[in-house]
Amino acid sequence: MQIDWLTVAAQIVNFLVLVWLLQRFLYRPITDAMARREERIETRLSEAKAARAEVEAEATRLREKQQELEASREEVLRAARQEASDLRTALEDDLRKEMEARRKTWETHLEEERDAFAARLRQRAGHQVIDIVGRVLRDYAGSDLAGQVAATFLQRLADLDAEAREKLSDAARRADGPARVESGVPLEPSARSRITRAVHEHIAPDIEVDYREDDALLLGVRLTIGEQTVEWSATRFLGRLETTLDEVIEGSSRRRSDRAPAKA
C-alpha cells in the first residue's frame, strides 16, 4: 500500500481535465439539447392547447349559431305561414269584392236592359193599344180615336174649377206667345176648331192656339199657356200596364238571380 505522489498529482490533473472535457463534450450539449427539446415540446403543447381552445371556442360559436339558425328558421317559417295566411285572406277578400262588383255591374246592366226593354214594350204596347182602341171605336161607335181624345179633353177643360181656370187666364194675359196644344195622335181640323173654341170660351177669348204632335203623349192632349198646363192622357192607363209589366219582369229576374248563387 503505497502512494506515489507524482502519480496522485498527475491523476488530479487528469481528473480535472476529464471534468472539463466531459463538461465540454457531454454534459452541456446533452443538457442543452434536452432543454431545447423540452422547450420545443412545451411550445408545441401550448400551441396545441391554444389551438384546441380556439377550436372549442369555434365549435361553441358554431353550435350557438346553429341554435340561432334553428330558432330563426322556426321564426321565419311562422312568419311565412302568417304571411301566406294573410295573403290568402287578402286574395279571398279581393276576389269576393271583385265578384261583388261584377255582380253589381251585371245587375246594373240587367236593370238597364230591363228598363230599356220596358220602355220599348211600353211604347209598342201604347201604340198597339191606341191602334186597337182607335179601330174598335171606328168600327163600333162610328167615331175616330183622335176625335174621342179631343172630346175627352174638351170635357176636362169644361170641368176645370174656377181657380185653375183663373190661373190659366192670368197666364194667357201674361204670355206673349200663343197657347200650345200637343197631342199624341194627329187631330182632325174639326177637333182642332172645337178645342180652339173651347179655349177662347173658357180661358182667353183672343189667344192664338198652336197645334203640335208629341209621340210621348201617346193618346192624350196637353194645353200649355206660359207656365200653366192642362192635360188629359191615356198614358196613366199605360202607366198601370207598365207597373204590371215591371212586376212581372222583376219577379222573373229575381227568380233567375236566386238560382245563380245556388249554382255558384
Binding site: M1, T7, V8, I12
Partner: peptide, 14 residues
C-alpha cells in the same frame, strides 16, 4: 487505475 491508491487518493483529494 482505480486499483491504485494514488488514483483513489487523487479523487478523494479532489
Amino acid at each position: 487505475p482505480t486499483g491504485s491508491l494514488s488514483t483513489t487518493a487523487a479523487l478523494a483529494i479532489c
